[in-house]
Design a protein around this nucleic acid. Structure first.
Lengths: 232, 232
DNA sequence: TTTATATCTTGATATTTATCAAATTGCAAA
DNA sequence: TTTGCAATTTGATAAATATCAAGATATAAA
């Protein structure tokens, strides 16, 4: 890696948690690589060679089964993925593909495990990250099982709105197709959901969303910190 | 705790992972307590006072939202729960109730966090446990999103059968109502699912299950190690 | 611009799952 | 045993979501 890349990488919280003297070892076999959209970064079932950290762009996590596919998450800068597989040295449970052109930091799994064993601060950070990831999936499971697709959509809109300044208007950060996956519904259903949301005074024009009655949408969504996770 | 209780507790893998000299500190404020069925052990939203470990009996993990409720897991002896909340010192995301009379080991959260900070072996064990828990929920999320209720039921039967000796006959370990919750369906749907499974030569009599054509059931279930988790 | 292609929407319909109500069965305490 | 309650089953129906097939629209490359 080039020097300026080290700076960039040092700002990744997990790496920053490692003691200064361990960082070189952690980054020795690491790559910071740029990938175009659609590239499949990892494939479920494969052994974990690298811990992946999104530095720039967006990555979709998904899983295939028979002839089906489902999205299990969408990540932005700062998020790592497949940490659990790396820790346990077990096969990936999910695949990942690049949505919009992305830069990914790839750190060799053995390095992660090695530093984990000798650097308590790094171990703590990693464990915290894992604990947060755990809570993230659990929340998503609850979101799926306890809410209807209309409610999930409303909750996502309310959350995204809040996290982008609460201006009550914003652009969707990805294709509606991807949002549908993120929400666990078919794209057609999302389309119809947006139609239904008109009666809650949500206006949709292409990627542009206007929330004209936040109170009403919020009432529908029933946001709940025990279900809704920060969008990363 | 009484001496024989220390033995019992020492066999819990997480506790066993702590260095000998740290065990007393870990167990100083701990309780090993017996609870009757139906007791609610923890309630989502509350701050994490204790890490809970099932020593005997069964515990159902569930979550409420509005007027709904969903099961997020059923645990047996050896399993801990709410580890992530303890590590992060954040509110529980799920509630827990006793199914069949149970003995629960409750270890104060601060003790867990304190030993975590000074005992690398314990920290490693805890992190591994967390990583496994993460993979467990992720698998459950995939199970829910990628399989129909019929397939989930078939997969559960195939898995349970395999883990109880592969005899192709066994008793359900809990009420059908609880199994329905575990599978994420209404009890009425489970009833009908069992009727449908007759054409796969599954016979149900009360709690007794006979699998008369494992191949056919297995074909329906498409077991997959990236989805099906050991039942613990 | 123009065109090719993918995304998005809409209509029609099928599947899946939930809900409600009413038996029925099982089981445990008296 | 008998009684009473909870669990389970079954029928009827509703609600939620998926699927398939066109169109319509947007977007990016030429």
């Amino acid at each position: 890696m080039r020097p300026e890349e080290f700076d960039l990488v040092g700002s990744v919280s997990l790496i920053a948690a490692a003691a200064e003297e361990h960082r070189p070892q952690l980054l020795r076999g690491a790559f910071l690589q740029r990938f175009p959209a659609h590239v499949e970064l990892i494939r479920e079932g494969e052994p974990p060679d690298f811990l992946h950290i999104v530095v720039e762009g967006q990555v979709e996590l998904f899983s295939r089964y028979r002839d089906r596919e489902t999205t299990v998450g969408v990540l932005g800068p700062g998020s790592s993925f497949i940490l659990a597989a790396v820790v346990l040295d077990k096969p990936y449970l999910k695949s990942a593909r690049v949505l919009s052109s992305a830069r990914i930091l790839m750190v060799p799994s053995e390095a992660i495990r090695a530093i984990f064993d000798i650097d308590a601060g790094f171990a703590r950070a990693l464990t915290r990250e894992l604990a947060q990831a755990y809570r993230g999936v659990l929340k998503e499971l609850k979101n799926q099982k306890l809410r209807s697709s209309l409610e999930r959509t409303a909750a996502w809109l309310v959350r995204f709105n809040a996290e982008t300044g609460g201006l009550n208007q914003f652009d969707l950060p990805f294709d509606k197709k991807v949002l549908a996956g993120r929400l666990g519904i078919a794209p057609e259903v999302l389309s119809r959901t947006f139609v239904t949301l008109q009666s809650y005074r949500v206006r949709v024009a292409g990627r542009r969303i206007h929330i004209e009655d936040l109170a009403s949408l919020t009432k529908l969504a029933s946001p709940d910190n025990l279900i809704d996770d920060p969008l990363a």
